[in-house]
Design a binder for these strands. Structure first.
Length: 371
RNA sequence: GCGGUAUUGGUGAAGUGAUUAACACGCCAGAUUGUGGCUCUGGUAUGCGUGGGUUUGAUUCCCACAUAUCGCC
């Protein structure tokens, strides 16, 4: 599928751009943030709650759905949207490449694909570019990812060079078998912290030709300044007229920094994960609801927030729920954190419109870090 | 009244005549970036019922008292 992407406005001061892409679900505005729904659910939330948090695009996962319940069952259900009753908007699926990096302890990366052990029962598994695309074709997300290798940080130049070449060959193989006309396919740029490798990976991936381009292998342990450079080293070699997706990045400040370097889409598990661990994003920094000081705090998480949690509940109550390990606490914080990021992205879009993103960033940092 | 047993942090408890009193839970704080984990990492008794004694040294041994508990009259 050809993903129609239109740039509405480009900043004169940096690489930020305002845009929109169209799927059968309608128009999606960029920059955009997606929460993660690994196992065909954004943990603790239903689609109505996501909609209320102004979230309409999610990222799901090939590896997890392949193991459970299996792609054939999702296909029989009528695809991922039908299966999980998700009608808010587009769904993306990650290729499973990241899981090979993050949870497969004993992995063996070969030219044909990756051999590793299931985290569920330890059984031997094999995932290849072809297999990943085949699974994603059945899952039926609107946008799917090439199968890539996400190398750890630090990695030597030599290792990274071999890795990006292999990821390029995998990208070609995946594209060759992609046969679901309703799905857009993105290529993934790697190269770690090395500019020459990011450049080569980007240019060669673009030559293969994809509907959009993902930036992978960042936020894997490197310093922030390096992380931002990695993004820069990539976006400057990507075509203007295609969507750029920075994978796995969702620190509030990273969203602003990413947008200023030309990123259109972000996803991150952080808002929902930190929520389940009792933390909430606020404009005045991240707060930990477990802290004793919120015991008798009968104000909302954030005064001006329009989310369901802030409109109806107090910190003291949410603290109680979190400490008592009640799932409603995790849910309310997840709702709030997602809304925090979708609101931040809305503000970012407005500031691109008025070309005031730099000023917005300065103020945001002062509020967020000077507690 | 007589005899036995026990008394260690917020809780359940381990332990030793002498370096910083184990562990668990709780509590306090921190982490978390293409989500296996309701996860991970720290901190948390200047003190071993009270008062005496023995000893170079006692939470650990002895005595008295207090409290709890069991048995007997």
């Amino acid at each position: 599928m050809d993903l129609k992407f239109k740039i509405i406005k480009k900043s004169k001061k940096n690489m930020a751009r305002l845009g929109e892409f169209t799927t059968k679900w309608g128009i999606s505005k960029t920059p955009m943030f997606m929460p993660v729904g690994t196992q065909a659910t954004v943990k603790t939330l239903n689609p109505e709650e996501l909609a209320e948090a102004k979230s309409n695009v999610i990222l799901s996962n090939t590896y997890h759905l392949w193991l459970r319940p299996g792609e054939d069952i999702v296909k029989k259900a009528g695809g991922l949207h039908e299966f999980m009753n998700y009608k808010n908007g587009p769904i993306l699926t990650d290729s499973g490449g990241f899981q090979v990096f993050s949870l497969a302890e004993k992995k063996n990366i070969k030219e044909e694909g990756v051999y590793f052990k299931s985290h569920i029962d330890g059984s031997k598994l094999f995932l290849s570019p072809e297999k990943s695309i085949e699974i994603q074709n059945k899952l039926g997300a609107d946008i799917i990812m090439s199968f890539d290798e996400c190398p750890p940080y630090p990695a030597t130049h030599e290792y990274m060079e071999n890795s990006i070449e292999r990821t390029l060959r995998w990208a070609k193989r995946g594209k060759a078998v992609h046969n679901n006309k309703d799905q857009a396919l993105f290529g993934i740029v790697q190269g770690g912290c090395y500019e020459d490798l990011r450049k080569r990976s980007a240019e060669e991936t673009v030559k293969i030709g994809f509907d959009g381009y993902s930036i992978g292998g960042t936020a894997v342990g490197e310093e922030k300044e390096i992380q931002y450079k990695e993004v820069e080293y990539t976006t400057k070699y990507l075509p203007e007229d295609k969507v750029r997706y920075l994978m796995g990045v969702g620190d509030p400040i990273d969203l602003i920094e990413g947008v200023m370097r030309g990123v259109d889409i972000f996803d991150c598990v952080a808002p929902t994960r930190i929520a389940r661990h009792g933390n909430a994003h606020t404009r005045k920094g991240k707060i930990n609801l477990r802290n004793n000081k919120y015991k008798e705090d009968f104000t909302p998480l954030e005064e001006k927030c329009d989310c369901y949690a802030c409109k109806n509940y107090t910190k003291a109550y949410i603290r109680h729920l979190i400490i008592a390990e009640e799932v409603l606490g995790q849910r309310l914080l997840s709702i709030h954190n997602i809304r925090f990021l979708t609101k931040l992205i809305e503000d970012i879009r407005e500031n691109i419109e008025t070309d005031t993103l730099e000023e917005f960033k300065e103020k945001f940092i002062i509020d967020y870090y000077n507690k």
